[in-house]
Amino acid sequence: MNIMIGLINGMIAAATPILLAALGGTLTYYAGIFNIAMEGMMLSGAFFAVLGSYFFHSWIVGILFGVLGAILIALIFIFFSIFLKVDEFVTGVGLNLFAVGLTTYLLRQIFNVKGAFTDPGIVPIPKIQIPMIQNIPVLGKILSGQNLIVYIALIAVIFITWLVFKTRFGLRLRAAGYNSTCLDTSGVSSNLIRFHSLMLCGILCGFAGSFLSLGYVTLFTENMSAGRGWISLAAVILVSGNPLGIALVSLLFGFADGLGLFLQQSLPSQFTSMVPYVATLIALFIYSIRKKKKEALI
C-alpha cells in the first residue's frame, strides 16, 4: 500500500510542473501564439527561485523571484515577437538557449559553481497538511501533505478553465487566435490580449520552475527543465488547449515518470529516464491515429 501511495505521490509531483507550464501554454495557444519558450521560462524561473530563496531565506521570496525570472523571459518574448514582429519560432528557440546561457553564467558568477548548486540555506516550499483530510486512512496521504505548488496548480486548472471559457477576457483571447483582424476591427487590440496571455504564461511557468528547484528537489542544476517545456507543449497540442484535458494528460506524463522510477529495479536508469519522452511520442501517435479515423468518418 505504501508503495502505491508513493507511486501516486510521485506521479503528482512529476505532473505538476508539466501541468503548470502547459496551462500557460494553453493561454498562448488560444491567443494564436506559437509559444515554445516555456522551456526557457521554466528554467529561468527555477534558477531565480533558488536565488531568492537562498538570499532571503524565504520560500515566498523564492517563488516571487521565480515568477519574476520567468516573466523576464516572457517580456523579452513579447518585445521580440509582438513589438518587433520577429518570427515566434526563432524567438522561442533563441530564448530557450538564452535562458540556458543566462542561468549557467549566473550560476557561475553568483554561486561560483559549475553544473549544480545546492546549499542547506535554500528554503524549500513547504508541504501543506490539511487538518481534517489528513486523517482519512489512505486518501489522506494523497490529498493532504502535498507541496503548496501542487494545490496552486489544481486551483490554476479551475481558474484557467473559468478564465478562458467564462470571461470577457477569455472570449477576446480566443478571438485573438481565431481571427485577430476581426478582434482588432471591433476595437480590442489583439496585441494587448497576446501581451496579457504571455504574461500569464510567464507567471504559470514561474510557478512550474519554482516547483522544480524548490519543491521537487531543493537545488538548481544546469538545464534542469530537461525538456519539460517541450512535453507541456506536446500536451497542449494533444488536447487542442482544453485545460481539463491538459490536467489529465499531465497526470499521464506524471504516471509515465513514476513508472520509470518504478521500473528502475529491473532496467538501467538510462532507459527508465527515457519513459516520459517515449510516452510523449506514444501519445502523439495515438492522437494522430484518432485524428485519421475521424477524418475518415467525415
Partner: peptide, 29 residues
C-alpha cells in the same frame, strides 16, 4: 513517423533528442 502517422517532426525530433541522449549514455555505461 511523419510520413505514416503525420506526427509533427518538430516535436518528434525533440523527443528523439532526449531519447538519443539517454540511449548513448546507456551505451557508454
Amino acid at each position: 513517423l511523419k510520413k505514416f502517422f503525420r506526427m509533427d517532426e518538430f516535436i518528434t525530433t525533440l523527443m528523439l533528442n532526449m531519447i538519443a541522449d539517454y540511449l548513448t549514455y546507456w551505451a557508454i555505461t
